[in-house]
């Protein structure tokens, strides 16, 4: 059994236990088939006359359907599969992911996205910074490091699985390099696929990207630049700056400056995500905002959010929230 790693005093322990018990009772009521959890080598009851399709995490053993993973049995019409919890990320076409560049190779970048292999982002499957649609020349290939370097954090979309691995694409202004913020890693099963994974929190001036692979980006808001002309003007300037790295111009200083309030908001949101991931709760924008508002309404400092007291409060709040949504539904 996975314990929550917190140092709690006696009352906090009891409160947390009570909150978790409440969550348990709520979820067991919700699932009409609450015994759908299986562990490895458990047989899954199926009606063979219906002609079942065995999906991921199942194995046919002497005519018996057996689970090969610990997880929850899901049934979609004839398909029976086991949805694993704590596993590595399983990509699906169209997922928005956040990754870190691990290698710059021939015409491609390799990205670590917490999958069983590194993902590939081809030079040809991303928009060039100058915004012009054209063939990628040998010069572009040589200048790849000026776009992304090793250890840069990048946001992209899953394109599909080709013969040589998982391919990504970044064909829009909203994808690309992420700067001035924090990257958080949570177990991928906590992030549900939704319509919206990019969030611009206007009141804080913060961008929040919930990558389907469990990489979450919290950073200062950047306006998506669609104006090509403006880009072209700024590009030679950047090159000038790079040529004389020793003297950082005032302009660039202003560009990279993040106001202290924004930094604090970033840290607060990041800590809210951390608390939710410690407790193992589903991570979505509403819950993050609730957690953040709870912390600011209690006048807690940012570092106090990771304390045990706040975790217990969040757990209690979550139990309350879920029971309310249950009543409505």
């Amino acid at each position: 059994m996975r314990e929550i790693e917190l140092s709690l005093n006696q009352t906090q322990k009891i409160r947390l236990k009570r909150a978790l018990e409440k969550l348990e009772s709520l979820s067991s009521k919700a699932n009409y088939n609450s015994n759908a959890s299986v562990s490895i080598s458990d047989s899954i009851p199926v009606n063979h006359e219906d002609g079942v399709l065995k999906g991921h995490g199942t194995l046919d053993l002497n005519g018996e359907l057996v689970a090969t993973l610990c997880g929850v049995v899901e049934r979609v019409n004839k398909l029976v599969y086991v949805r694993a919890l704590r596993a590595r990320y399983k990509p699906e076409v169209g997922d928005i992911v956040v990754g870190r560049v691990s290698e710059v190779a021939q015409k491609r970048w390799r990205l670590d996205i917490h999958y069983s292999q590194d993902a590939v982002l081809m030079l040809s499957s991303m928009n060039l910074p100058d915004g012009i649609q054209r063939r990628r020349t040998a010069l572009d290939e040589l200048n790849m490091r000026s776009i992304f370097e090793e250890n840069d954090v990048i946001c992209a979309e899953v394109r599909g699985i080709q013969h040589d691995g998982l391919h990504l694409q970044a064909r829009s202004q909203k994808y690309g390099k992420l700067e001035r913020g924090q990257l958080l890693t949570v177990p991928p099963y906590l992030v549900r696929r939704r319509k919206q994974h990019f969030h611009h929190l206007e009141q804080y001036g913060v961008d929040l990207i919930l990558g389907c692979n469990g990489f979450i980006w919290v950073g200062e808001h950047v306006e998506a630049k669609d104006d090509m002309v403006e880009d072209q003007v700024s590009k030679p300037e950047q090159q000038n700056i790079k040529s004389n790295k020793n003297s950082i111009s005032l302009e660039e200083q202003e560009q990279t400056y993040t106001p202290i309030e924004t930094r604090q908001s970033i840290c607060r949101i990041a800590n809210a995500v951390r608390v939710l991931s410690i407790l193992g709760f589903n991570i979505n924008i509403e819950v993050i905002m609730d957690t953040m508002n709870l912390s600011s309404s209690l006048n807690l400092d940012i570092h106090e959010m990771l304390g045990s007291e706040f975790c217990v409060l969040v757990a209690e709040g979550e139990a309350e929230r879920r029971s309310l949504t249950k009543k409505k539904g």
């Binding site: 996975r2 969550l23 348990e24 299986v38 997880g71 929850v72």
Partner: peptide, 18 residues
């Protein structure tokens, strides 16, 4: 071991919620 794994799975599932 089976019992331990099953309990762990159940706990992860209900904590995550819907």
């Amino acid at each position: 071991i089976r019992e331990i794994m099953l309990e762990n799975t159940k706990q992860l599932e209900y904590r995550r919620g819907i």
